[in-house]
Structures are given as C-alpha cells and as structure tokens.
C-alpha cells in the first residue's frame, strides 16, 4: 500500500492561482464597500449605473497650480445654459439639469445608459479662491472651471493661541 497524496499535482499547482484570484476578489469587494460607506454625502458612487437608481453625480477632475485651481466636470449633452456654477471661498458648486435628448417612443423600444435629470455637486477646494476671479467654459461635453487662488489664502498664517 502506498500513500496517495491528497492533492494531485494538477490541483496543487492550481491552488496558488485560484487563491490569489480569491484574494484579489476579496480586496476588490473591500475596496468597493469602503468607497461606498466612507462618503456619506454621496449616497451612490458616481459610476453607479442609472438603472440602479443612483442619483447622477457627474465625474470631476480637480487640479491645482501655484495660482489656479482647475475643476473639470464631464457633462455630455448638457446645454451650457442649464448649468449653474457658483463659487464661495472654499467650495465650488456645479448644478444643473440635463434634458432628455432621446425622443420618447410609444412602443418603448429604448435602451438607456446615459444620465438624465438634475444634478448637483459641491466640491471642496484645496485652497481659498477669489470668487470674483472665476471662469467657466463648456466645450465638447466637458465643463472647465478655473479659479484664481486668493493671495491671502495662499499663505495664511493661523495663530495658535495658548490656553
């Protein structure tokens, strides 16, 4: 009688691979859940398909230079007249409405993936900006807002008071 290994060579050879896949899968799920719950102000992630009933949060890009804060926002098919941009010292609010471009049909033969309806996003700014020096431009479905950092805000010293 000889001992037969519990695992065949083939199975043990596959083990690390399948384990790695499982670990990847678990990490991915954890990442999704973390993202899901760590942003209470955004009830649904922006990538949630509209079929899931998530509100539309347009995707944004924020970048800064020494003097500027630039926010880009993907708003395909939105009439620039329907977009409201407002800036306070520390936050930018982009709100508006996208009217349905797809004509409605009587037979309901429509497949829909795009977002429609109203949207609103408040974006905290990395530094104080001058609300008077803001430009907003809409081009090819992308809104670009450029804000000039306020000189007082760039190097504001906050005195620490002794108790």
């Amino acid at each position: 009688m000889s001992l037969i290994p519990f695992r065949t060579k083939r199975a043990s050879g596959m083990e690390p691979g399948s384990l790695a896949t499982l670990t990847d899968f678990r990490n991915e799920m954890n990442r999704l859940f973390e993202g899901f719950f760590s942003r209470p102000l955004e009830p649904m992630p922006a990538w949630f398909p509209p079929a899931f009933g998530g509100p539309w949060l347009p995707a944004i890009d924020v970048s800064e230079t020494d003097t500027l804060v630039r926010v880009r926002c993907e708003l395909p098919g939105v009439d620039p007249k329907d977009v409201d941009v407002s800036v306070s010292e520390d936050r930018l609010v982009i709100a508006g409405e996208k009217k349905s471009a797809a004509e409605t049909t009587t037979d309901g033969m429509t497949h829909r993936e795009a977002h429609y309806g109203s949207f609103s996003r408040a974006i905290p700014l990395p530094e104080a900006v001058d609300p008077a020096k803001v430009s907003a431009k809409y081009d090819k479905g992308v809104l670009i807002v450029e804000m000039t950092k306020s000189p007082s805000g760039t190097s504001r010293k906050i005195p620490v008071q002794a108790a």
């Binding site: 098919g77 471009a101 049909t105 037979d107 429509t110 795009a114 479905g141 992308v142």
Partner: peptide
Amino acid sequence: TDFGTEVVIHADLPG
C-alpha cells in the same frame, strides 16, 4: 431608441 423606420443611438463622448 428604435423608431421602426430608423434606429437612433446617442453616445456620450465627453472630451
């Protein structure tokens, strides 16, 4: 959308 006489496709291509 399928209108019967034609199919209309709207694609979001921002940028």
